[in-house]
């Protein structure tokens, strides 16, 4: 088990494990009812409120096996879904106790999703058409290499060397995806809540209780000199779609390699009673050779968000740093000091 992959703080308040999402997707058509009328708030806005899950088996980038195929056939989707379920299944406890304990969580804790996107898309990325992240600019590539080199040389000198999620600052998706917004799924608790008033939309991501209260009144973004971990978000309605534009990011996040100049456009459209289509476009000419867009059909959950007190109980960081110091001490001893 890699250090830091399975840290302990997530066990707090993960009673919010909404395991059974429903199994209606397998026969669902690849697109949504264009005539669907969303429920509305008293002020006439589409009602997007509630708790939604972005857990999904569809991979972020299109696997090579699907070539230039953007959509799966129903038969392919069934087979691939089953394959992905097997890949992510952690319920098999027919291992010795040591292995079992070292793997820490069983399937109850993980939240990889149980279904592919109802659209049968082969990847969450829908643009570029190849379903793959565009190439990084040379500048962004250098930045990434420097970061990887730094991490190899200084894996745990101090807390700042660790991933943002291990520091309980931002839950940055799987692997080293470097931040958010956007709201990407990760290994567990892939839930977010929307609360609407006429003038604001509140987005609460369960992980690290990341909260954005987004004004809808057309005000300008924060002054360019003000940089925030979650950026500066402004929202508006385009027809029945909620559009949120976010900029003013810091240089401390690097979502998929993005720079502080990233401009993020998120679109939320309720396309069915139980589906909120979440689409986001990353535009950052300093980091990517072209803009790109991903789409996640998020699914309504019948439950609530519970408090995720990550930092308050971050024993994981103490363990990571103590472990690194112990390894260094052991290495010094072995070297004969």
């Amino acid at each position: 088990m890699s250090k830091g992959k399975l840290h302990g703080y997530c066990v707090y308040f993960i009673i919010a494990m909404f395991g059974a999402i429903g199994t209606v997707w397998s026969q669902a058509p690849p697109s949504f009812d264009a005539n669907y009328e969303p429920p509305r708030t008293p002020s006439g806005q589409p009602d997007l409120q509630g708790v939604w899950s972005n857990a999904i088996l569809t991979p972020f980038e299109r696997p090579e096996e699907f070539g230039d195929q953007a959509f799966l056939t129903e038969e392919q989707a069934n087979a691939y879904q089953e394959q992905r379920r097997q890949q992510t299944f952690r319920g098999d406890r027919t291992v010795d106790v040591e292995t079992d304990v070292s793997h820490a969580y069983n399937d109850f804790w993980w939240d990889w999703g149980t279904e592919l996107a109802r659209t049968r898309r082969t990847s969450l990325i829908i643009d570029p058409p190849d379903g793959r992240l565009p190439a990084l600019t040379p500048q962004a590539q250098r930045r990434r290499e420097a970061r990887i080199a730094r991490r190899a040389e200084h894996p745990a000198d101090g807390p700042e060397d660790r991933l943002l999620r291990e520091r309980c600052i931002i839950w940055d998706g799987n692997n080293d995806s470097g931040g958010g917004p956007p709201m990407m799924p990760s290994a567990y608790n892939n839930n977010f809540q929307i609360v609407q008033t006429e003038d604001y939309v509140l987005l609460l991501k369960e992980m690290v209780h990341e909260t954005r209260v987004v004004p809808l009144d057309g005000r300008p973004h924060l002054h360019d000199s003000v940089r925030q971990w979650l950026g500066s978000s402004r929202g508006r309605w385009e027809g029945d779609t909620l559009v949120i534009e976010t900029k003013n990011f810091t240089d401390k996040t690097y979502y998929q390699g993005a720079s502080e100049h990233m401009q993020l456009t998120e679109r939320f459209t309720r396309v069915a009673d139980d589906v909120l289509l979440y689409e986001f476009t990353v535009n950052d000419p300093q980091a990517f050779m072209r803009p790109w867009t991903a789409q996640i059909p998020t699914v309504k959950l019948d439950g609530m968000i519970y408090e995720f007190a990550c930092h308050e109980t971050n024993r994981g960081m103490v363990g990571l740093l103590s472990g690194a110091r112990a390894e260094e001490a052991a290495a010094r001893e072995a070297a004969g000091n």
Partner: peptide, 24 residues
């Protein structure tokens, strides 16, 4: 005018206080 909640994600301000003794 335009008052809004700004970000006070203070974890990074306390990492030295909480974990400083564990630094290399």
């Amino acid at each position: 005018e335009n008052i809004e909640l700004m970000e006070f994600k203070c974890v990074e301000f306390v990492e030295e206080k909480i974990y400083g003794h564990l630094r290399k």
